[in-house]
C-alpha cells in the first residue's frame, strides 16, 4: 500500500507518491471498462432527455392536435418539418413529449425501487446479520415467506383495490425490491461482524445500533451499490410489465410499458413508430444499466471474478 507523502522527501530524488483510496481504484477500473463507460454516458444522456427533453417538444404531452386526429397514419409520421420528431401517437399527441414523460416515470420507478431497497434492505439485512441468533432466524424466515409470494399478483391486486396511482405503484414496487437486498446485506454482515474493527468497537463500548450504522453499513456499500444498479432495470421491467397490461400508470400519465402497449395495439395499422420509439428507449436504457452494473461489480469487487 502506497503511503501518501505530501511533500518531497529532503535529499532524495523521488517523486512524491500520491495515495489512492479504494474508491479511486474502483473508478480507474470502471473507466477502463469501455462498455461500462459508454453505457454510463448513455444513461446520463437518457437522464438529460428525461429532465430537459420537454423543452424541445413541439407541444406538451397532453396536447391533442385536433387537426390531425383521425389521420395519424397519413400525416402523423415522424417528421422534422412540423416538429413532431417522433411523430404522433394514436390520440394525435406529440409522441416525443409522451416518450419524455414516459422515460421520466419509468426512471423514477426504477430509482425509487432501488432507493427503498438500499435503505430498507440494507438496514434490515445488517440488523438481522449483526444481531444473529433467534432474531436473525425470524427476520430471515419473514423474508423467505414474503419472497415466495408471487408478488406480481399482489401488486396488481393492490393497484386494483386502491386505484391506480403513481404512489401505489411506488409503494408496491418498494415492497418487493428490498427482499433480495436484505439477504445480500445479511450475508455480508455475517462475514464482517467478526472482524477486528467491529470487535474493537464492541470493546470500547459502542452501542449495537451505532456499530451497525457506522461500522457495518459503510463496509456494505460496495455490494449494495452494485446490487442497486442491477435492481433499477429489474424494477423498470416490473413497472413496465404492469403498465403494459393497462394496470399500472393511468392516462394522461404514461411510462415505457404503457407506451409499448399503445404501440403494440396500433402497429397493425402501419403506425410502427408508435412502437419503435418507446421500445428503443426501453431496450437501450436497460442495456446500459446492465453494462454499468457489470462494470461496477468488476470495479468494486475485484475478488469476485
Amino acid at each position: 500500500m502506497a503511503l501518501a507523502l505530501g511533500r518531497k522527501p529532503i535529499g532524495l530524488d523521488i517523486a512524491p507518491v500520491a495515495g489512492r483510496s479504494l474508491w479511486q481504484d474502483a473508478r480507474t477500473r470502471f473507466l477502463r471498462n469501455r462498455a461500462a463507460t459508454a453505457s454510463l454516458v448513455v444513461l446520463v444522456l437518457v437522464g438529460l432527455f428525461a429532465a430537459f427533453g420537454q423543452f424541445l417538444a413541439a407541444s406538451p404531452p397532453d396536447y391533442v392536435d385536433f387537426g390531425l386526429l383521425g389521420q395519424v397514419k397519413e400525416q402523423g409520421a415522424p417528421s422534422l418539418t412540423n416538429g413532431h420528431w417522433f411523430g404522433l401517437d394514436e390520440q394525435a399527441r406529440d409522441l416525443y413529449a409522451r416518450v419524455v414523460q414516459g422515460t421520466r416515470i419509468s426512471l423514477m420507478v426504477g430509482i425509487v425501487g432501488a432507493l427503498v431497497a438500499v435503505v430498507v434492505g440494507t438496514l434490515y439485512g445488517a440488523t438481522s446479520g449483526y444481531v444473529g441468533g433467534r432474531v436473525d432466524n425470524v427476520m430471515m424466515r419473514i423474508v423467505d415467506i414474503l419472497k415466495s409470494i408471487p408478488y406480481m399478483f399482489v401488486l396488481i391486486l393492490l393497484l386494483m383495490v386502491f386505484g391506480r396511482s403513481i404512489f401505489m405503484l411506488f409503494l408496491g414496487i418498494g415492497m418487493i425490491s428490498w427482499l433480495d437486498m436484505a439477504r445480500i446485506a445479511r450475508g455480508q454482515t455475517l462475514s464482517l461482524k467478526n472482524k477486528e474493527f467491529v470487535e474493537a468497537a464492541v470493546a470500547t463500548g459502542v452501542k449495537p445500533l451505532t456499530i451497525i450504522l457506522r461500522h457495518i453499513v459503510p463496509n456494505l456499500l460496495g455490494v449494495v451499490v452494485v446490487y442497486a444498479t442491477i435492481l433499477v432495470p429489474e424494477m423498470i421491467i416490473y413497472e413496465s410489465f404492469v403498465s403494459f397490461l393497462g394496470l399500472g400508470v393511468q392516462e394522461p400519465n404514461t411510462s415505457w410499458g404503457a407506451l409499448i402497449s399503445d404501440g403494440t395495439g396500433t402497429m397493425q395499422y402501419g403506425t410502427i413508430w408508435q412502437l419503435l420509439f418507446p421500445l428503443f428507449f426501453f431496450v437501450v436504457t436497460l442495456f446500459a444499466f446492465f453494462f454499468v452494473g457489470d462494470g461496477l461489480r468488476d470495479a468494486l469487487d475485484p475478488k469476485d471474478r
Partner: peptide, 22 residues
C-alpha cells in the same frame, strides 16, 4: 444472452408479431 436479457416477454411479443406477422 446479454441481448435477450433486455427483451422481456412484453417487448419480445410485439417484436415477434412485427417481424413474423406484419
Amino acid at each position: 444472452t446479454i441481448g435477450a436479457q433486455v427483451l422481456p416477454n412484453f417487448v419480445m411479443g410485439p417484436i415477434l408479431i412485427l417481424v413474423f406477422t406484419l
